[in-house]
């Protein structure tokens, strides 16, 4: 069915408009606060938003001066994110390997449990864990948050890893076994390099979650292990309607690293989403 030229033009224009609307929706809010964080005080509120302006770092300077806590919290976020990612990736690798290579009733049961616990809302666990964390002296520590974050992604992670390891032929394991390699050696030398893509996918999920998470950080930290989103929320809370610039600077610092990370690792993110979300 050949379409007439005017109709094609109309369709093309509509498509273009739709794409522009999608771009404005997705990037508009981000672009606005990032660019505004470099604008002089007066121009932040200019309507329509100015596209050209003399960039200034005054809001970053004021953030540095008034919120030294924020930069300490960024450090905490880095530590916690790294720790959570390492824990989740390796735990998922091991479990994914077991689920891919072995069959047993109890294994299937434990896999099913992984899916069921994913239905438990995080806020529900804060309640019983709060007194326990206090009793064990884990309240306000980096380790506690890292383990919590990792736990909420080992379930998805195990299934993503299983999907990736399923694609590695079993003969590779067997050949290694014939050469006298133990399970652990096989896993380390053969499986891990071939499943690196899956590990990256899991890492992206966990890292983004751990970097951005608010609820657990809010309940389980107070001073030592406070993360960046928490201090950003404090900036929002202390805010009297004048300091938008400082707020934008803080939001930009919290946001840009993870946005760049997601863009760089987009390939893995997409692969992981499709492998993990559809399977289990």
């Amino acid at each position: 069915m050949r379409r007439s030229l005017p109709r094609q033009l109309l369709l093309g224009t509509l498509k273009l408009l739709a794409v522009l609307a999608i771009l404005l929706w997705s990037l508009g809010p981000i672009a606005l606060i990032v660019s505004s964080s470099f604008k002089p005080e007066g121009e932040i509120f200019a309507v329509p938003p100015r596209l050209t302006f003399q960039p200034t770092f005054q809001h970053y300077v004021s953030l540095w001066q008034h919120w030294p806590d924020f930069f300490k919290a960024l450090g905490n976020s880095v530590i916690i994110t790294a720790l959570a990612t390492v824990i989740a990736v390796f735990a998922s690798l091991l479990a994914g390997y077991a689920y891919s290579r072995f069959r047993a009733r109890w294994l299937a049961g434990s896999a099913f449990l992984l899916i069921v616990v994913r239905l438990i809302p995080p806020i529900v666990t804060t309640l019983p864990l709060f007194p326990v964390a206090n009793a064990l002296g884990l309240q306000d520590t980096h380790v506690l948050l890292a383990v919590l974050y990792a736990t909420f992604f080992v379930s998805l992670g195990s299934f993503v890893m299983r999907a990736f390891i399923d694609q590695i032929p079993k003969e590779m394991d067997e050949a290694a076994a014939v050469d006298g390699a133990g399970r652990l050696t096989t896993l380390w030398r053969i499986i891990m390099p071939l499943a690196a893509q899956g590990m990256m996918a899991v890492a992206v999920f966990v890292a983004v979650y751990a970097w951005n998470e608010f609820l657990f950080a809010f309940v389980f930290t107070s001073t030592r292990a406070k993360t960046a989103p928490l201090v950003l929320a404090e900036v929002v809370g202390s805010f009297d309607g004048v300091e938008w610039g400082t707020l934008f600077a803080a939001a930009t610092v919290q946001l840009l690293p993870v946005l760049l990370f997601v863009w760089i690792t987009q390939k893995y993110l997409v692969a992981g989403l499709t492998a993990g979300a559809t399977k289990g």
């Binding site: 997705s26 981000i30 606005l32 606060i33 951005n212 608010f214 950003l232 990370f261 997601v262």
Partner: peptide
């Protein structure tokens, strides 16, 4: 385009609240 559409995935709830409160 997909990279652009994915962008909000990277944004924390707190940062998103800052954006939409301002808008």
């Amino acid at each position: 385009l997909i990279a652009c559409v994915l962008a909000p995935y990277a944004v924390s709830e707190v940062a998103a609240v800052v954006m939409w409160r301002f808008l």
